[in-house]
Amino acid sequence: MNRSWLQSELEKYQTAYVEEEKYKSRFLDLLFFDNCFERSLLTGHITASVWALTPDYRQVALLHHKKLNRWLQPGGHADGDENVQRVALKELAEETGITDVRLLGDSFFDIDIHAIPARKEVPAHEHYDVRFACVANDPMQLMKNEESNAVDWISLDGLEEKVGHEVSILRMREKTSKF
Rank of each mutant, 00 (worst) to 15 (best):
E19C: 01
V122L: 13
F179H: 09
W153A: 08
I98S: 12
E19S: 12
K120G: 05
F179K: 00
F179N: 06
G75D: 10
R58Q: 15
F109N: 05
N137T: 04
A88M: 04
H165L: 08
K12R: 14
C36N: 09
F27G: 15
H45D: 07
P123Q: 02
K90D: 15
V18N: 12
E126Q: 14
D138V: 11
K178L: 13
L92F: 03
N137S: 04
V101I: 15
I111D: 14
G97I: 03
K66M: 04
H65E: 13
R173G: 07
Q14P: 07
P139N: 08
S4D: 15
E91W: 11
E21S: 15
D152Q: 13
N69E: 13
Q141E: 15
I111F: 06
S40E: 15
Q73S: 13
I98R: 06
H165S: 11
I113C: 11
R131K: 14
N83A: 08
V151A: 01
D34L: 06
S177M: 08
I116C: 10
A48M: 05
F179M: 05
M172Y: 00
L10F: 09
K90A: 12
F132Y: 14
L104A: 03
A118F: 02
D152Y: 00
S168V: 03
T176G: 02
G158N: 14
K90W: 04
V163Y: 00
